[in-house]
């Protein structure tokens, strides 16, 4: 089995934030540069719209690309598993009311002996 990770910044989520919980907010738990926990409340609609669109797009793209992959019969290894991780790498407050979050992906390929 073999794996090669790749990381790329994919898009930036910008949304209004709240300092305290509201009926329609999603708490996002993170760590600041000092290692202390932070809580930002992002409106549910913005969270779903921005992440949901991206989520569906990347799913379609990976699925389509994988279907085009053809194992080389002369190679002892074949691609057997692909995972794509989406993580919030950093968050910045803008004008005390907005939050900008950088979303990055890690891609892992696993190859299996034939």
């Amino acid at each position: 089995m073999s794996k090669w990770p790749a990381t790329a910044t994919l898009f930036i989520l910008i949304a209004c934030k709240h300092d305290s919980p509201t009926v329609e907010s999603i708490p996002v738990i993170g760590l600041d540069k000092g290692g202390k926990s932070t809580v930002n409340y992002i409106p549910q609609k913005a969270f779903k719209r921005k992440l949901g669109t991206f989520f569906a797009e990347i799913s379609d793209q990976v699925s389509t690309t994988l279907e085009q992959y053809e194992p080389n019969p002369n190679m002892p290894w074949t691609l057997s598993r692909v995972s794509v991780g989406l993580g919030i790498e950093s968050e910045f407050e803008i004008l005390d009311e907005m939050i900008e979050a950088e979303i990055e992906s890690d891609i892992e390929f696993r190859f299996q002996k034939i």
């Binding site: 996002v28 993170g30 926990s37 968050e91």
Partner: peptide, 27 residues
């Protein structure tokens, strides 16, 4: 959070979402 608030994993943590595809017919 340190105070116990439950939420989605944000900055500084592991991937908030991970999708895994597998090739049919492999182990």
């Amino acid at each position: 959070s340190a105070e116990g608030t439950i939420g989605v994993m944000g900055a500084g943590g592991e991937a908030a979402l991970e999708l895994v595809w597998i090739r049919k017919g492999t182990s």
